[in-house]
Design a protein around this nucleic acid. Structure first.
Lengths: 189, 189
DNA sequence: TATTATATTGAATATACATTCAATGAACAA
DNA sequence: TTGTTCATTGAATGTATATTCAATATAATA
């Protein structure tokens, strides 16, 4: 393994450790020395890999933002099926990769301004709302989704998903909900 | 107005200012001097009213916990009606008293451990989950609510409400959702 | 092997900010 | 009025901790 690859590995290890600690103890209660100790490595070395504690945070938030961009609808699949499938995949993926839950928590904190102004800006660069709103309009046109402001419905849908992911992050024993329940928010009765 | 009352008023003013700033800028980015400046009063005087910045935070989280305890079902009202009515009242109350949104955000941060261990403990002392689960069982017995783990359903219900309240806190222009949408999570199709 | 570049350490430093404090002013009681 | 208590100020202090740095070890290269 080349030196560059080694460094990349180490960076990832730091990022994953930091993500876990930031979520478990909170960003401000997590000291650089705590992360260093957990990785493990010396305090000073941390700054060989990341310019500052804040840069480390930014990297994580950028990762989170990047991960979210992958969300977009495949044409030809009916919206209610697509959303249900999406949630199913999300829940099962997160079950195997628990850092996904932590990422939701961190992104939530960033979006709500609990971290820093800059982190908020990065997190705000995502837009799942718009594309989901389009999807919802399609479902309304085909008479499956209930009527109402599609944009508002989209916001509520994602807010619920966010809330539920955060709840699952907090209660590791909690089972995933049936995607059906969440999509029911949008369905006509 | 007696001196004691004056002091009480001032305390409340500080609490409300702090709540707003804690949510707008984040707890750690809000300096004591920022709060003092906003109230307004001198930095030193803050400590005449609150022992420390953390105690100020605890008071707020305690307030939030207290406010939540008022939630409990009236017998004889069907659960789906009760929940819909509750949400309707919550949304309209919060519209008039925007600090309610901020309180949801703060309590969420506290519950998720974004503030401090102690704040988390206070926030964890609330249990809406249990009482709502009972309500859900009742709805299942009467055949109106869908089948499934009532406790899990209750968790998801509250997680959604939390997520939506936080979203509304973030987007002041956002309209409240139709309570129907959220309760639909629980309803049999 | 010799030379250079990178990795690593832990103690020293610098800074931001919560908190304290000594001094002053205002309200109230006697 | 005079003494007492509470309210208020803003500068001084102390502390925690992110960051720097000089020194050393390890790996890559020639």
């Amino acid at each position: 393994m080349t030196r560059k690859e080694q460094k990349e590995e180490r960076r990832k290890a730091i990022l994953m450790t930091a993500l876990r600690l930031f979520v478990e103890r909170g960003y401000y209660d997590t000291k650089i020395t705590d992360i260093a100790e957990s990785v493990p490595m010396s305090t000073g070395l941390m700054f060989h890999y990341f310019e500052s504690k804040e840069e480390l945070l930014f990297e994580l938030v950028k990762m989170g933002a990047e991960g979210t961009r992958s969300f977009s609808m495949t044409e030809d699949v009916p919206p209610e099926i697509f959303l249900k499938e999406f949630l199913k995949k999300l829940f099962s993926f997160a079950k195997d990769q628990p850092w996904v839950f932590n990422m939701f928590v961190l992104m939530g904190q960033a979006r709500r301004g609990g971290l820093s102004e800059e982190a908020k800006k990065i997190a705000d660069s995502i837009d799942s709302i718009g594309s989901t709103a389009k999807m919802i309009k399609k479902g309304q046109d085909s008479g499956i989704f209930r009527d109402g402001d599609a944009n508002l419905m989209s916001r509520c849908f994602w807010a619920s998903v966010q809330g539920i992911m955060e709840e699952m992050a907090l209660n590791k024993e909690m089972k995933a909900p049936d995607p059906e329940w969440i999509v029911a928010m949008l369905l006509k009765k």
